[in-house]
């Protein structure tokens, strides 16, 4: 099956270079709706949904394939192959920052630069390493997701049926934001929050920008600093924006930081 269809790939903008945007756990490519358009004048932009999220083909969800990040990494590389992408700028949020790191190692030449927004190579504390969460806390999240299918079912999922707050974006609006199959959401949460890719950071060989939010409880500042220390020659920018989703809460700050890098 075509990766472009499977991952609901959307291509906009034009320019000699391409910028690939990858959304993290909990949402879909709408996550980039206030950031990606700012680059459409200079870049071709490629946005996609991880399998199970947004407008992706849910029939393509194979629990064995997506039992680790490598399934998502393979998808990203396949999208790159099918679109003939070389030397692109990769912008990944949250878990997809690490998916981009892994893809850059597995497919040299695909990405010329990495922008990691709120990256975390490991969410669970381990000895001296501070990930921000204990193992039982991650289990609590997984249990919560497992027992909350009612509030998270396909028909009840947080959905918007028109009347967006920002009518200027209304025409792009699909029938909902952040749709995710509840079962897949739980699997993806498990893969995300139990991942450990600390050893891969040293293998990154392309210029890398790390955007660290203030007061991000999912990927706290020590984690961003850890990534900065372990990715050779990387640049760390502390954003004033608080929370885990600066691409939504402070898009202009994110846009400025990316502009300064590319």
């Amino acid at each position: 099956m075509s990766a472009v269809v499977r991952n609901n790939v959307r291509i906009r903008g034009s320019g000699p270079k391409t910028m690939v945007f990858a959304h993290g756990y909990g949402c879909d490519q709408n996550m980039w709706r206030y950031v990606a358009p700012a680059f459409e004048a200079q870049f071709r932009t490629v946005l996609f949904d991880q399998v199970g999220a947004g407008g992706s083909d849910r029939a393509a969800y194979d629990p064995a394939k997506y039992a680790s990040l490598s399934g998502y990494v393979d998808d990203l590389i396949q999208i790159g192959e099918q679109l003939g992408l070389r030397d692109t700028v990769f912008v990944g949020h949250s878990v997809s920052a690490m998916i981009g790191v892994l893809a850059s190692i597995a497919a040299p030449g695909l990405f010329g630069q990495l922008v990691l927004v709120g990256p975390s190579p490991r969410y669970v504390d381990d000895g001296d390493y501070v990930g921000g969460f204990s193992s039982p806390q991650v289990d609590e999240l997984l249990d919560f997701l497992g027992s909350n299918h009612m509030g998270w079912s396909n028909t009840m999922a947080p959905a918007i049926m028109g009347n967006p707050d920002r009518p200027e974006l209304g025409e792009e609006l699909t029938d909902s934001f952040c749709r995710m199959d509840p079962g897949i959401a739980r699997d993806f949460a498990r893969v995300t929050f139990t991942s450990d890719n600390r050893a891969d950071l040293a293998l990154v060989s392309v210029p890398t920008l790390i955007l660290q939010c203030s007061d991000d409880v999912i990927a706290p500042t020590p984690v961003g600093e850890y990534v900065h220390r372990h990715v050779k020659g990387s640049t760390l920018v502390h954003l004033r924006a608080s929370g885990h989703c600066p691409n939504l809460s402070a898009p202009s700050e994110v846009i400025a930081a990316i502009r300064g890098f590319v």
């Binding site: 909990g26 949402c27 709408n30 949250s94 707050d165 934001f177 952040c178 409880v217 989703c245 939504l248």
Partner: peptide, 16 residues
């Protein structure tokens, strides 16, 4: 558990 879900899923919804 709820907080992790809130930060990754409900917060983005509020923003969007």
């Amino acid at each position: 558990g709820t907080m992790m879900h809130y930060e990754t899923s409900y917060s983005p919804l509020l923003a969007m």
